[in-house]
Design a protein around this nucleic acid. Sequence first.
DNA 1: CGGGTCCTTGACAGATTTCAAGACGTGTGG
DNA 2: CCACACGTCTTGAAATCTGTCAAGGACCCG
Lengths: 266, 266
Amino acid sequence: MFTTSTTSDQFAVSRSAPLASTGARQTKLWSSLSEVCQLMQVPVSHADDTVRFQHVQFRAGQRIYTIGQPFDMLYVVYSGFLKTVAIDESGNELVLGFPMKGDMFGIDGIHGKAYTSEVVALSTCDVILIPFKTLLTIGKASPDVEQAMWGAMGRELIREQRMISSIGSLGAEARVARFLMSLSDRFAEIGFSSKQFNLRMTRQEIGSYLGLTLETVSRTLSAFNALGLISVEQKTVTIHEPDSLKTLRRLPPSKHAARSAAKLAA
Amino acid sequence: MFTTSTTSDQFAVSRSAPLASTGARQTKLWSSLSEVCQLMQVPVSHADDTVRFQHVQFRAGQRIYTIGQPFDMLYVVYSGFLKTVAIDESGNELVLGFPMKGDMFGIDGIHGKAYTSEVVALSTCDVILIPFKTLLTIGKASPDVEQAMWGAMGRELIREQRMISSIGSLGAEARVARFLMSLSDRFAEIGFSSKQFNLRMTRQEIGSYLGLTLETVSRTLSAFNALGLISVEQKTVTIHEPDSLKTLRRLPPSKHAARSAAKLAA
DNA sequence: CGGGTCCTTGACAGATTTCAAGACGTGTGG
DNA sequence: CCACACGTCTTGAAATCTGTCAAGGACCCG
């Protein structure tokens, strides 16, 4: 009744997470600490592998957690694609990110004992459950793990800073271009093609994420296509000139905002 | 040669951090752990007060740290006002925040061993130096402190998520209105008037922070003034209708973006 | 009092959103 | 198997907002 694997239409270069293609869904049910660390690409020496973390599967559209739900878990994506969204006071969805393999989410719940966002699966997903208390305990014994935790948190913080910068200072074209290159890089990291891939999210979701309307996203994509920078057909994207996309910058805001620095030094 | 206190023109309601008005700058030089926690408004039971943290003073324009500088310290504002800025690849300044009393900064350095932003004093400031290693050590012994650290980190994360939402989905008027109310609330928290206060930053800095130009900020402020919502004269702002400002919402983006949720439930 | 920075205001251009209509794709039910 | 319904994507035209450029005034400091 359901597809064997929602990632099957992704243009895979190598498959590190083979899913059984034989009838029933036969996926990995537990991961050790070192496996999780490897997935997240954090270096950890001699991890205590007596601890094992449970996996849980979700299908497209299902919610991993909702806003206001008591916080007790962190999550790491083992496979699949998701989106994290906030709901503003008007009830509008605001997409905050698109977690994929190796990404951790749920971090926003650490403060205040409850999640402030919700996470929805965009495809069939396999996520690893990591009880926060357990992680804290492990951290006490292993400085490596503790450091990794702080690092993960810090990375997220920096990623958000970059988003703020982008949305605040770049035009629509540059934002979409960066979004594409960001996806490209992430796909490359997890073993997919960086040149050709499927968008798992709608134009509306991309627009929400970038602070644009779906029409603007669509138009920009069409423009890139016309310029030969990419090829787009529905959800399938092929990158032709990554360098141009990376460089692309049209600046609606400050142009003469030269460094006002160098006034007083400490 | 320098002003006795740059906060002296703030419309104070209560003064919890008295500065000596007698000639030479006679400020607090050390704070205990519990004092720092109190400043940050984090509840901590029986803190180890044998540890003391050094204070350092800065004058307007001085940099607390710069981008790329090796990370080893976190900072808590004891008094004064600052701004944290990132520099994008074009060399433009991008204001990320305006730390004030009780705020912690330097968190962005935890990941990657180096700061990714710089922090500049907007007025005479007194900041507390908190060696990260020391904090980690204390955290191991005191779950309270450790929890507080995670909480501080998480709070910052959520704050940035809010910023992304605002910049991405609100028009200029709403952004400025929220900015004013945010300042108002923070001033109230640290014992200043929430109705009348001085902007410590320039329109340019506000604009950079909100993803707008200084002209738009100026115009919007003037418009609010004309509507009677506030009074502005240069740096002095008086809030007249906080409720209107909080509610104000002009939506350039999605209007018909009704909840597309409620499709599949977990 | 002069220089410099910051703020305000106006006119204009340009980008993005809004509104609207139609094509494309997929899934469901007959 | 096909038709229909729905959600998604594309494209066009007009309206609006915000940025850009420019000039003048206010304020601070030396």
